[in-house]
Nucleic acid binder design. Structure first.
Lengths: 153, 153
DNA sequence: TTTTTAATGAGAATCATTATTATTTTAGTT
DNA sequence: AACTAAAATAATAATGATTCTCATTAAAAA
């Protein structure tokens, strides 16, 4: 029986079989840039695809992360969140996390300067700690605009 | 009844009542610099203080984090880890996390340059995103020396 | 010492994630 | 298009970290 769906994402590297659930999960994350939990993805797919199981969402998010297509963010509340990695151009950004409401914002400020410094740091770390670096993350913690109002001085 | 223990940590700011479990938890983290999970702390205290409950460890780690005495690290495996914040001098470091075995190493390379850049970034972020920054974290992911040997190619 | 009330211990409950297993699909082959 | 072997899935149980509940204990103040 022929498939009833077409994938625009089959060009990704080897990942076993490309199935409809995998396609839907990746499609959601590629088309909705942001930082999504497994439950977010599940809830977004549920109306049109109620048969897809939460376990499959987890498996797929893990697979796509291992493939480098998604980026996993460990949050202090114990939920992981995932974001579409994108091409090299849009790839490089960092996060602002509100310590009050948990909101995550992206920032791309001073990327050029940062890339230069990171390069220096990575070389030094490789030399000194014999640690081979594959990636890095910068996270700023503080208060988002909405929460600044609500917290007493 | 007089207390049977003396705290060297009573100088910390307001935190309600300073109790023996709180003292023991803080004592452990202050004297054993590293990145410890709640269970690590529980296991370390158990031999001499088996009556202290895991729930109290969690409550205390959270309290000390909110006080700024500890720093909470969210790990991808869903476990939080805690480190003693220390004074301003030793305060500033970042983490190397091995993506294979989970080992965490500290690094203090290029702190001066990094502090300068971070200051620029924070100002820009405050201006542009109206986000008030209280702290930041840099994390490098890669392979620790031991795991470089074991991973093929 | 008495009193007030925050903090604790024990264990149940919750929440995110992973494992199990029978069934369904994919993708390659006729 | 049908056949087949292996991979992936759905459903649900199991796990593991963390939080909650509540009766009891202990800290700090009077």
């Amino acid at each position: 029986m022929p498939r009833s769906w077409k994938s625009p994402f089959k060009t990704f590297g080897h990942c076993g079989r490309w199935t409809q659930p995998r396609d839907l999960v990746l499609g959601f994350l590629a088309e909705n840039r942001g930082h999504w939990s497994a439950k977010d993805v599940y809830a977004s797919l549920f109306p049109r695809h109620p048969q897809i199981s939460l376990a499959t969402i987890y498996r797929t998010l893990d697979l796509l992360t291992r493939m480098g297509v998604l980026n996993r963010l460990a949050m202090a509340d114990g939920q992981n969140r995932y974001e579409f990695t994108g091409g090299p151009a849009e790839n490089h950004h960092h996060h602002l996390i509100c310590t009050r409401c948990g909101r995550i914002m992206d920032t791309t400020d001073f990327v050029d300067e940062e890339v230069k410094l990171i390069q220096l740091m990575e070389d030094a770390i490789k030399e000194k700690h014999r640690f081979v670096i594959e990636g890095h993350q910068m996270t700023f913690y503080g208060l988002c605009p909405a929460c600044q109002q609500e917290r007493p001085g």
